[in-house]
Computed example of a mutant assay.
Amino acid sequence: MIIRSKAPLRLGLAGGGSDVSPYSDIYGGLVLNATINLYTYCTIEEIEQDEIVINSYDSNCFEGYPLSSELKIDGKASLIKGVYNRIVKDYQITPQGFKITTYNDAPIGSGLGTSSSMVVCILKAFIEWQSLPLGDYETSRLAYEIERKDLMLSGGKQDQYAAAFGGFNYMEFHKEDLVIVNPLKIKRWIVDELEASIVLYFTGASRSSAKIINEQKENTSKGNSDAIEAMHQIKQSAVDMKFALLKGDTHALAEILGKGWANKKKMADAVTNPLIQKVFDVAVSAGALSGKVSGAGGGGFIMFMVEPTKKIELMNALGKLSGFVMPFQFTDGGAHGWRIYKSDRV
C-alpha cells in the first residue's frame, strides 16, 4: 500500500509575529493568512524489509535506518524523524518497514511556512496510514508541538494551522497555546482582484528565521517598549485587513500591508537588509504600492501590491534582478492524504 499527502504553503497577509510566544501568551495574537497553490508532498510506501528508508529531497537526506521505535534526531531529516517518533510514542504504533519520500514546491527558508507545512503533510500521511482520529485542530496542535517543543525549532503557531485548514483564515492566539481559527468566506471577485494585484517575488536568498524570531522573543521578554508597540500595531493590522479584505478594498489592503512592513522592521535588526531594500526600491520605482517580506523577514519571498494595469511593468522590472517572480493562486483546500493500492495503479 502507498500513502500520499500534500499540504499548502501560505502567504501571511497581516499580524505575523503576534502568534509567537511570549507575545501571544501575554497580549494575545491575531493573524490573517491565506494558502496558495504551492505545496509540500509526502509519500509513504510499505516495504517488506525491516528498515526505514528516508528520501528527503527538501533536506537532502537519503538514508536507511534499522527498524526502531525511535529515530535519533541528528540534524538529518529532523522533521520526518520528529513526526515518526511522536506518532509511535503517542499512539503505540508497532514499527514496520516503510519508505518515506518528501519534497516541496518552494525552497526552505522561503518565508511561506515550508517547514511547518511539511510537518503537517508528513503527519497527514501517517494519520491516513494508521487511521488515526485527528481532525484539523488536533493535527495543527500536534504539528506545532513536534516542531516547536520536540525539535526546539523557533517560530510561531500560524503556519501549522494554515496548512491544515487551508483557505483565508483569521486566527486568534491565546495563552496556553489556545488557537481559534476563523475561516473567512471571500467573494470570488475579491480573490480574483487580489490575485491580479499581487506580485510574489523570490529574492534568491533563503534565510533562517530563528535569529529574527529569537530577537523578537527577547525584545518582548525584556519589555522593549518600541518593539512591543510595533507588535501591537502589527496585530491591529490583522483586524484592519480583515475588514478591507471582506469589502474588497485593495487600496486599503495595500496601505495596511505597507504599514505592517514598516512596523515589522522595528521588531528585529535582521528583518531587512541591503538586498531586500534594493528590491523594494526597484519595485516602488516600477509602480508597487507597497510590499512586505513573507514570514519572519531577512530574505525569501516578498509580496508586492500593485495596480493590476501596472503589474507587467513591475514583473519586468523585478525580472532584471537576481531573483524571480513566482506565479500563484489562492487555494481553499487544506492538507489531506489518500491511499493507493497496487491494483489501483496504472
Rank of each mutant, 00 (worst) to 15 (best):
A317L: 09
L9I: 11
Y23F: 15
G75I: 05
S5C: 07
N219K: 13
I312M: 11
L132W: 10
I93H: 10
F328D: 01
D19T: 12
V284D: 00
D240C: 05
S110I: 07
F168C: 04
Y161Q: 02
F330L: 10
E128G: 00
I186L: 09
E70T: 12
L67F: 09
K211E: 14
Q96N: 11
S322R: 15
I73W: 09
I44K: 06
D150Y: 13
K342W: 14
L257G: 00
I228P: 04
V120T: 07
T35Q: 04
A288H: 02
D74F: 12
F165H: 09
K217E: 13
K175I: 10
G248C: 09
L275Q: 12
A283W: 00
L318G: 03
Y137I: 12
S78H: 03
N85A: 09
A317I: 09
N169Q: 10
F98R: 01
F304D: 01
H174R: 13
I228R: 02
S78Y: 07
V239T: 10
I302K: 01
V271H: 06
I276F: 05
V88R: 02
T272I: 06
G323I: 04
L134R: 06
L275W: 01
Y201N: 02
L184W: 08
F280E: 09
K278H: 14
K124W: 08
A286W: 04
T94C: 03
G155T: 03
Y103Q: 06
A210T: 15
N273A: 08
P8L: 06
G258T: 11
G291Y: 02
N219E: 05
I312S: 11
D332H: 14
A254Y: 05
M315P: 00
G166S: 09
V53R: 09
E70C: 10
A296T: 07
A77C: 10
M303H: 00
G295Q: 07
T102H: 07
W338D: 14
N85Y: 08
A296F: 06
G64A: 14
R148I: 13
M303K: 02
T102Q: 08
C61E: 11
F126Q: 01
R141C: 07
N60R: 13
N33Q: 05
S78W: 01
G297E: 03
D159T: 01
L194K: 03
D136G: 00
A14T: 07
H232K: 14
D150N: 09
I47E: 07
S21T: 12
A262M: 14
G258D: 12
I212L: 11
G167I: 08
A106H: 03
E48D: 15
F304V: 09
E229H: 10
G333Q: 15
G82A: 05
L178K: 13
T94R: 12
K157F: 15
I190D: 07
L123N: 01
E128N: 05
H232A: 08
I186V: 15
I190L: 10
V191I: 15
D281P: 04
E70Y: 12
F165E: 02
V191Y: 04
M171R: 02
I2M: 11
D344W: 11
Q92L: 13
L71S: 08
I87M: 11
L246P: 00
K259P: 01
R148F: 14
L9S: 03
K187G: 03
K292P: 06
V325Y: 02
K149N: 12
A227F: 06
S221D: 12
K278C: 01
S343L: 10
N263S: 12
S322W: 03
K81P: 02
L184G: 06
M241E: 05
F243S: 13
F173V: 07
M152G: 00
E229L: 11
